[in-house]
Lab assay of single mutants.
Amino acid sequence: MDETGKELVLALYDYQEKSPREVTMKKGDILTLLNSTNKDWWKVEVNDRQGFVPAAYVKKL
């Protein structure tokens, strides 16, 4: 969790967005987890953008 109590995830792999609903991340990025109710796609925030990334590409910290 960060200082505001939000849950964080670590990008395990690079991911290039394939639609406007997704976000690009690089391996090693720390992202804010917004929603993990879907087992396949998690909603995150990175670089002031919100979108989805494959759940298998990130790990909760």
Score class of each variant (00 low, 15 high):
Met1Phe: 13
Ser19Pro: 04
Gln16Pro: 06
Ser36Arg: 08
Arg21Ile: 13
Asn35Glu: 13
Val46Pro: 00
Gln16Met: 12
Glu45Val: 09
Glu3His: 15
Leu33Arg: 00
Tyr13Ser: 07
Val58Gly: 01
Thr37Phe: 10
Asp29His: 05
Leu31Cys: 10
Phe52Cys: 10
Thr24Trp: 04
Leu10Gln: 11
Leu31Phe: 07
Tyr13Lys: 12
Gly5Phe: 13
Ala55Gln: 05
Gly28Trp: 05
Asn47Ile: 10
Asp40Ile: 14
Arg49Met: 07
Thr32Arg: 12
Ala56Met: 11
Lys27Gln: 08
Lys60Ser: 07
Ala55Lys: 07
Thr24Asn: 06
Gly28Ala: 03
Val46Glu: 04
Gly5Cys: 13
Val53Gln: 00
Val46Ser: 15
Pro20Asn: 10
Ala11Met: 02
Val9Asp: 00
Ala55Val: 06
Pro54Asp: 01
Arg21Ala: 13
Thr32Gly: 08
Lys18Val: 08
Glu7Val: 15
Met25His: 01
Pro54Ile: 02
Glu7Trp: 12
Ser36Ile: 06
Leu31Tyr: 08
Tyr57Pro: 01
Lys59Leu: 14
Asp40Gly: 09
Val9Leu: 12
Lys27Ala: 12
Val23Ala: 05
Leu33Tyr: 02
Lys26His: 10
Thr32Pro: 15
Ala55Arg: 12
Gly28Glu: 02
Arg49Cys: 06
Leu31Ser: 02
Arg49His: 07
Thr37Val: 10
Val46Lys: 15
Gly28Val: 00
Leu10Cys: 09
Asn38Glu: 10
Asp40Tyr: 15
Pro20Thr: 11
Val58Glu: 01
Lys27Pro: 03
Glu45Gln: 15
Asn38Val: 05
Val53Ile: 08
Phe52Gly: 01
Met1Ser: 13
Lys59Ser: 09
Ser36Gln: 11
Leu33Lys: 01
Val46Thr: 14
Lys59Ala: 12
Ala11His: 00
Met1Lys: 12
Lys6Asp: 08
Arg49Thr: 07
Glu45Lys: 10
Ser36Leu: 05
Glu7Phe: 11
Val58Tyr: 00
Lys6Pro: 13
Lys6Glu: 09
Gly5Lys: 14
Ser19Asp: 11
Gly5Asn: 12
Trp41Ser: 02
Lys43Gly: 04
Ile30Gly: 01
Ser19Gly: 12
Thr4Ser: 14
Val53Tyr: 00
Glu22Arg: 04
